[in-house]
Amino acid sequence: MGLNDSWNRLSSWHGTNCCQWSGIACDNTTGAVLAVDLPNSSGRRPLENLQYLNLSFAGFSGAIPPNLGNLSNLQFLDVSSFSLNVDNLEWVSGLVSLKYLNMYSVDLSKVGGGWIEPLNKLPLLSELHLEFCFLSGFIYYLPSVNFTSLEFLSLQGNSFEANLPNWFVNISSLVSVDIRNSRLTGRIPIGFGELPNLESLMLNYNLKLSASCFQLFSRSWKKIQVLDLSITELHGRLPALLGNMTSLIHFDLHFNHIEGGIPSSIGKLSNLQYIDLSLNNLTGSLPDSIGQLKNLVELRLNNNLLQGSIPSSLETYSV
């Protein structure tokens, strides 16, 4: 998909100074784009059928014009930028056909928790990127959760200073969730472990986010492949039910408060390639079953209270 310029209105759109392009109006002082006006003799609006729009790091600055919300056929929108900002996101609710939205590093600090409601009106949205957008807070009550198509959600690098709302775990379509390093607080909703399609969950580097290992890892985690909860406030013992997470490939729980022994059921995780349990309070000896992990590439257990000898089952691994 792309932009069909049947009337050759974009012939001047070359070079880096977009203010010299035909149909572009800029502020004389700041150079910010104020309007895009591309009339044509057919009487039709030249952008009304636009489905794909990628303006990422194009050099624009200032406020994103809310009239972008008039592009009701738009399916892909990327306005990633270090110099754009938004006062509110109400205009987004007009993008009723949108499937992909990327606003990486756009300043949304004025939006507060209000970023959720307009996005919740987009039933086709399947991928959402709001990384490093200065987001803060959540709305904790939604009359209904309409994110019925949302599969990929990335909110990393924000400043929420708030608990995760429980409605997150009602989005059954989720495949990947990334909210790393976002100053989350409170408890990790154990409902993440029951999401039927979840393959990747990264909540690491949220220093005030906590959970009981026994409760969290006793859930089903049917399809989980990547699980990174490092540098949080995990505590308690690893349950034997950990061995049911048979799709797990990457497992990182380092720098937490996990205690007790490593369950022998870990040997059931036949797809595991990377495991980091370092910088915890693990005790006891390594289970011999750990040698059953034939796909294991990296094992980190340093800075614990483990005792005994290295199991002979690990002798087959090259060091």
Rank of each mutant, 00 (worst) to 15 (best):
L135C: 03
K208P: 06
L203K: 14
L296H: 10
Q215C: 09
L286H: 02
L207A: 15
S56K: 04
D37F: 10
A162D: 01
G267K: 14
P311Q: 05
G260Q: 09
D276Q: 05
R180W: 01
L184D: 03
S173I: 05
E161I: 06
L229K: 05
Y317F: 11
N281I: 07
D178P: 03
F217R: 03
L38A: 11
E48L: 08
L299I: 03
N181P: 04
Q292W: 10
S72T: 11
R180G: 00
I224M: 14
L77V: 05
I231E: 08
F152W: 04
F132T: 15
W221D: 03
H250F: 15
Q215G: 05
N204T: 08
Y274H: 15
S289R: 15
G113K: 13
S56Q: 06
K121G: 01
M202N: 13
E131R: 09
S93V: 04
S312M: 08
E233I: 05
F60Y: 07
L241C: 08
V33C: 12
G186M: 01
G236D: 06
N70F: 04
S176W: 06
S12E: 06
A58F: 13
L305W: 09
S159G: 01
P263I: 04
H257E: 13
N28P: 10
N295R: 15
P123D: 02
K294G: 07
E117N: 04
V106Q: 03
L305V: 09
V226M: 10
S218M: 09
L142H: 03
E151D: 09
K110M: 05
S172N: 14
S22W: 04
F192E: 02
G113M: 05
E117K: 02
F255R: 13
L101K: 00
N4D: 04
A211P: 02
S105V: 01
S230V: 06
L269I: 07
R300W: 10
L84V: 01
E127S: 12
L153G: 01
S11C: 10
S72E: 09
S309K: 11
G308Y: 10
V169K: 00
P239V: 07
Q215V: 08
M245P: 02
P66G: 10
N166W: 08
G112P: 00
N49Y: 14
D37R: 14
N280W: 05
T16H: 14
V169I: 07
L306K: 09
S81R: 09
L153K: 02
N54F: 05
G59H: 13
I139W: 01
V319T: 15
Q307G: 11
S278W: 03
K110R: 11
Q156S: 11
N181S: 13
W167D: 00
R44A: 12
D27P: 06
